[in-house]
Computed example of a mutant assay.
Amino acid sequence: MCLSMQNQISNTSEYKLKSGIKIYHHHYNIIPSTQILAREQIHKIKQDSWYLWTANGQTQSIGQRDRKWIAPTNVNVNATYGFLISESQFSLAKFIPYVAGLSIIQVLRKYNLQGKIKWVNDVLISKKKVCGILVENRGKDPSTELYRILVGIGININSEISDFVDLGNKATSMKIETNTSYNIQDIILELSNSFEANMKFLLDSVNLIDEINNNLEKFDGQAITFDTEFDGQHEGIIQGVDNNGALILLIGDKVHNFVNGRILAPIP
């Protein structure tokens, strides 16, 4: 990847998280996307360590279904984590979005903010989006035969209300909620420690379903519109998440479980 002068690495560091595991952290000024860069540099991920790409700003931020947008500079967390998991652990990969969401919620609590997981890739505060999560399985590393996992996380930290003018009342930031500015690097470090610790719980087969359901946004029992992409839209009431990570939706008088799809909006 050829980087312009404004996109050169501004900081490269190696440090240990609270668990003792080493994380290799490359921080950039402005790049197209940490997720794109992570895909290109995925060969760098080492066994028994984590890799982290962060940037002050992004010109081609990537979300679910490869949606792209411009991320404002120096106000939010723009991060992609990379790590390896084994064949025996791969069946647990479907829970990684939840683990990332729980980790973000734990960080928010430290600042007296209450977050909820919007199934399956967002975190909300007061039903407004504060964070998006993108998990990718990039196949096996040829040298280790371990699966390469990338987890993109974008958190609205110091964004202003004016940054969301095109989104109506659907997004928020930590600053908007508390009228306080935050140190982004401190939050990245807190998130890294929380995420790695929770991933260890998951890969050690600790059952997190109760914790997930306790932190799942159920929209106060209000009916929601659910888009399955391949099977059209449904209207139902969220019941929770099952042991396979599927969304449990009450449609009429019948319960249905969905492994794919997205929540569009509560029904007024």
Rank of each mutant, 00 (worst) to 15 (best):
I23E: 01
S162C: 05
I62G: 00
K200C: 01
I85A: 09
S13Q: 15
L203I: 04
V123W: 01
L264D: 04
Q89D: 12
D220L: 09
I251A: 02
I36T: 15
V120N: 13
N121A: 03
N112R: 14
G63A: 08
E229G: 00
S61W: 08
S33I: 08
L189M: 13
R262G: 05
H26C: 05
E136T: 05
C131D: 08
E160T: 10
H234L: 14
H26W: 10
I238F: 07
Q106D: 11
T59V: 02
T73R: 15
N215A: 07
Y98M: 08
T80N: 12
I149E: 02
D231Y: 14
D231C: 06
L84S: 01
L250R: 15
R148C: 01
Y182W: 10
K46V: 13
M174C: 04
D66S: 14
L92W: 03
N183Q: 04
L52Y: 08
C131V: 05
N244V: 01
D242I: 00
F164M: 03
D204K: 03
Q239S: 02
N213L: 07
V107E: 02
L203K: 06
N243Q: 13
A265P: 00
H27W: 03
T228Q: 06
S91D: 08
K175C: 06
G57P: 09
I237F: 11
V255D: 06
S194R: 09
L202S: 07
I42V: 15
Q222F: 07
H26M: 08
E14V: 09
V206I: 14
N169Y: 10
